[in-house]
């Protein structure tokens, strides 16, 4: 992989002037993913913060061809673009080598767009799907999603007198995608840019579908200071909330192996959405959160053949 200095010579494919909030993790994710591409890229996005903020008519932050269709169909839409490419190349109408990437938030990916994503991956389109995961429907004002962590307060899972935030655990989308047995699946974080860019590069280079789930915090929804976006992503990795791993042709590999995980409270504490968990009497909720992390971490290590 190129060094950061070499990467800095690449053209900026997502310009400034978009309307994402200060400190948004989504555009950091997009920039790092696009740095992994070495050919012409065609991009698309599901409805969501990224799409709304990067294409408010008549402005577009995309210096590459871009398409937004709707919320639940970023993958299906891009599968059509890729199919058109295959056809037009075969018919001699296009020669240039191109790669295809569809972005979606966790709402558009874990939830409403899961069928479309699953279908596109199963069909084997030569495309990359990137979920920028910020753990809620942030665009519509912080509603819970299948990716929202246990205990998080959102506007549809508020911390109330009888319900302390989201009662369910997260769905493990990365493993669902790994079960599709596609050439490449990875989980990455904007805090580990080298790992992320390398994963993007792999994803773009495989012949067939690839999926990357990227930790991309939302300061507004997480109730964290703007400058903390990268740092909290790093803590997510260090606590085992967001393990970095990849599944390459069925081979599971853990990319970050701390001797000991930091306690999950390190991840929860700085975030306003978990504040209620730290009230006296809620200790059991923190224990539940920790137990879930421990369980998932040991399962993942086993899968990756670690220990």
């Amino acid at each position: 992989m190129a060094t950061i200095k070499e990467l800095s010579r690449k053209p900026e494919l997502l310009t400034g002037g978009h309307r994402l909030c200060a400190g948004c993790g989504a555009s950091i994710a997009v920039r790092q993913v696009l740095l992994g591409a070495n050919d012409q890229v065609i991009a698309g996005s599901a409805t969501g913060c990224l799409e709304v903020s990067t294409t408010p008519y008549p402005f577009s932050a995309w210096k590459i061809p871009f398409i937004h269709n709707a919320f639940e169909n970023s993958a299906a839409t891009m599968s059509g673009v890729e199919a058109a490419y295959q056809s037009l190349v075969r018919r001699g109408k296009i020669e240039k080598k191109m790669k295809f990437v569809a972005f979606g938030g966790d709402g558009g990916t874990y939830d409403i767009g899961l069928q479309s994503l699953s279908g596109a991956m199963e069909r084997g389109h030569d495309m990359v799907y990137v979920c920028y995961d910020n753990g809620a429907y942030m665009n519509t004002g912080i509603q819970r999603s299948g990716s929202t962590p246990f205990g998080a307060a959102t506007t549809t899972s508020p911390a109330g007198k009888v319900r302390p935030g989201k009662p369910q655990q997260r769905k493990d989308l990365t493993q669902i995608m790994a079960a599709h047995d596609i050439p490449y699946v990875a989980q990455a974080s904007i805090s580990h840019w080298k790992d992320l860019v390398k994963k993007a590069e792999k994803a773009f280079s495989v012949d067939g579908p690839a999926f990357i789930n990227v930790m991309a915090p939302c300061p507004r929804g997480w109730r964290t200071p703007n400058e903390m976006t990268i740092e909290i992503s790093k803590i997510a990795v260090q606590t085992g909330f967001w393990p970095l791993y990849e599944v390459e042709d069925g081979e599971w590999k853990l990319n970050f192996k701390p001797k000991e995980l930091k306690p999950i409270t390190d991840f929860l504490k700085p975030q306003g959405r978990f504040r209620h968990l730290f009230k006296p009497g809620n200790e059991h909720l923190l224990e539940t959160a920790q137990a879930e992390i421990d369980k998932n971490w040991s399962r993942l290590k086993k899968r990756c053949g670690v220990e």
């Binding site: 169909n73 299906a76 839409t77 891009m78 059509g80 058109a84 490419y85 479309s116 279908g119 069909r123």
Partner: peptide
């Protein structure tokens, strides 16, 4: 020699058609 996409639903059928048509096909 059409590229025939066996989508998993009609919603995806029209979504893929939109993607392909915007692509230039």
């Amino acid at each position: 020699d059409t590229e025939y996409i066996n989508v998993e639903s009609e919603h995806s059928a029209m979504s893929a058609c939109i993607g392909a048509s915007a692509a230039g096909a």
